[in-house]
Design a protein around this nucleic acid. Structure first.
Length: 225
DNA sequence: GCGACAG
DNA sequence: ATCTTGTCGC
């Protein structure tokens, strides 16, 4: 039962093409769906880079959402699709991420992406891209704020909204008491409340276990070249 | 023109 | 993302 990947059109060759693709796909994002009611498995994706080269490793980890134990792990080595440009992370990471998702034998109930969802200049960050690509509910969890934010109270679970214009596009969410918040935004097929609940459920440290596991796996694989 | 900008 | 030692806290 592999993850079925949808065709999102040709890979953009330029930043202008990529921006146009983001604008084109953005209306397809579903921000109002309830998300998975019974979260059995959650996947994390991350990409590790090399020194200054374009060699990258993508790692996908599927965790049992209750025990937080991995049920499947995959790594794929490849090349960055493009140098990193703010607002265009998908241009760089999506090629390897797609390759890693193709290897996946489990279809997770949720995918946690390292980066932004709709908290993005054109409301279409990497998590939205992965959501439309897979049809699986996705959320973005970023380690640094994509927008200015107000610091939430120190308690675990407290949060402040991230607003752009008159829209709430994400939250600064405290996953551990007194620890720097993470920045959660919806990717696809889930709402912000549910997204934050899942992040808290998956977080034993600052970052959700999905992200930590994928990060470590990709990093390890990148070192043993 | 200069700095900032998810990773 | 990546380059890096010690330090504080559970």
């Amino acid at each position: 039962m592999h993850v079925h990947l949808h065709d999102l059109g040709p890979t953009p060759a330029t930043l202008d093409d990529a921006a146009a693709q983001q604008e084109r796909l953005r209306p397809l994002v579903d921000t109002t769906a309830p998300g998975p009611t019974d979260l059995r498995t959650a996947a994390g994706i991350d990409v590790a880079h090399h020194d200054g080269t374009d060699e990258v490793v993508a790692a996908v980890v599927v965790l049992d959402a209750t025990t937080l134990r991995p049920v499947e792990t995959r790594t794929v080595r490849g090349r960055a699709g493009h140098p990193y440009v703010p607002g265009f992370l998908a241009l760089r990471e999506l090629p390897v991420v797609t390759a890693a998702l193709e290897e996946l034998e489990h279809t997770p109930d949720l995918i946690v992406c390292d980066g932004a969802g709709v908290a993005h200049p054109r409301r279409f960050g990497l998590a939205c891209h992965v959501g439309l690509l897979t049809g699986v509910p996705t959320i973005g969890v970023a380690k640094s704020p994509p927008l200015p934010f107000e610091m939430p109270k120190p308690a675990r679970g407290s949060w402040t909204p991230q607003v752009e214009g008159d829209e709430v596009v994400g939250r600064a969410l405290r996953t551990q008491h007194g620890v720097q918040p993470v920045f959660v935004s919806v990717g696809h097929r889930i709402g912000l409340d549910a997204a934050c609940e899942h992040v808290l459920r998956l977080a034993r440290h600052r970052l959700p276990e999905t992200t930590r596991r994928a990060d470590r796996l990709a990093r390890d694989a990148a070192l043993r070249v």
